[in-house]
Each structure stands twice: as C-alpha cells, then as structure tokens.
C-alpha cells in the first residue's frame, strides 16, 4: 500500500515494562516474541505478578518460551472468541494498577483493546506491539458487517458483497478499518484486486 498514512491509523510501539502491581499480557502468533524480547528489560520478579494469555498456532509454537518466563499464570485459549468471556470477567474484577500489554496481529490487538475500553481502561495506557500478519478487520460502512482477515485492496464485504476500498481510517471502538464502496459512482468500474495486507 501507499507509504503515506493518516492519523487515525493506529501506531504500535514496542512493549516496555510499566510500573504497576499486576500485568496482563495478551498475545497471538509472533506476539509471543514481543513478550520474550521485553522480558530482558523487565525488573526482577516482574512476571511474578503477570498473567500471560497466548493464543497459539496449531503447532504450539512459542509456548515453551513463554513458560520459561514463569509468569504467575499462563493461559492458552484456542481463539480470541473463546478468550473473551474470561477476559471480560478478569477486567471486571481487576483493580487500578493492572497494566495491559497486547502483542501480535492487528486484529487481536484491536479486539483485546476494545474489551479493555469497555472496562474503563484508557487506550493510551495500553502497551501494544504489532507482530505478524497485516491482515485487517474491516467494517463495511454500508451494511455494518465486519469482515475478518482482509488482505486485498479492494475487498469484498463478506456480508453484503459490495466491493470496498479498505481505508486507513480506523475505529478503536469497533476495532476495525473502514470499508467504503469503491465503485459507487459507476458500478461498471471494477478496479483490479491486489494483495495489499499480507
């Protein structure tokens, strides 16, 4: 895609240890490596108050590296959807002083942040690091349906079928990029579909 981006496009950083008593890590895919990289900078005993939630791939890659950090808890849900009820419960019962660290694919970071926002956590206090696929979650502005793992530009809405321009405009509340009909003015114009978010 174009190098030029816009201000609503989220910017991810590099995880760094925050002050606080409890630390909750949520990661998928290569996000595990963001955690192990950060561990080198963490003060001694940091992981004694840490819970790591990791959604592993089918081969179970990176699990042993996370185990080696000896966190207070390591939880390995099969998918984000299966994690969500537990995550909501954890956040409801949590106290101020809990810090959040999200690492991995953009879809995971976005959806975990969405749950945190709903629990009253300010997005600026959340540490994030993007690793792995650039595939996007996209909201179709027309039918409001969310299409997961969008890798092409343009992309078809998986709900209403319109051909959508995947914009950089991003909503934290929806955890999604905006998709807008690319040929609304003249349906006969069908631009080629390219692989844009590998």
């Amino acid at each position: 895609m174009t190098a030029k981006t816009i201000i609503s496009r989220p910017i991810y950083g590099t995880l760094s240890p925050q002050p606080g008593k409890h630390h909750l890590f949520i990661a998928d895919a290569e996000g595990a490596l963001a955690i192990t990289d950060m561990a080198g900078k963490a003060p001694p005993g940091f992981f004694d108050g840490a819970e790591i939630v990791f959604i592993p791939d089918p081969e179970g890659k990176h699990i042993s590296a996370l185990e080696a950090l000896e966190p207070a808890q390591l939880h390995l849900p099969p998918s984000f959807a299966s994690l969500l009820p537990r995550l909501r419960q954890t956040l409801t019962n949590a106290h101020m002083g809990l810090r959040l660290y999200l690492a991995g694919t953009e879809g995971l970071i976005g959806q975990a942040m969405q749950a945190a926002l709903e629990a009253g956590v300010d997005h600026t206090s959340i540490e994030t690091e993007h690793r792995g696929s650039l595939a996007r979650r996209m909201q179709c502005v027309h039918c409001k349906g969310i299409t997961e793992n969008v890798t092409t530009q343009p992309a078809a809405c998986s709900h209403c079928g319109l051909l959508l321009l995947v914009r950089d405009h991003y909503s934290r509340r929806l955890a999604a990029f905006q998709g807008v009909c690319i040929n609304a003015e003249d349906r006969s114009e069908i631009p080629p579909m390219e692989e844009a978010f590998p």
């Binding site: 002050p19 606080g20 949590a94």
Partner: peptide
C-alpha cells in the same frame, strides 16, 4: 476498581506525593 479516576486538590507537597505514588503503583 479498574476504571477509577483519582482527583487531588491541596498543597503542592500533597499533590506531588499522591501523583508520584499513583504513578509508581501503575495508575496511568
């Protein structure tokens, strides 16, 4: 509870003390 906001008003020394403690305990 998570989602609490803290407000301090008083002498400068008190404000600084509270802000510093809150920061070190992980209050954003």
């Amino acid at each position: 509870p998570l989602g609490t906001h803290l407000y301090v008003c008083g002498p400068a020394g008190m404000i600084n003390w509270v802000r510093a403690r809150a920061a070190s305990l992980g209050w954003p």
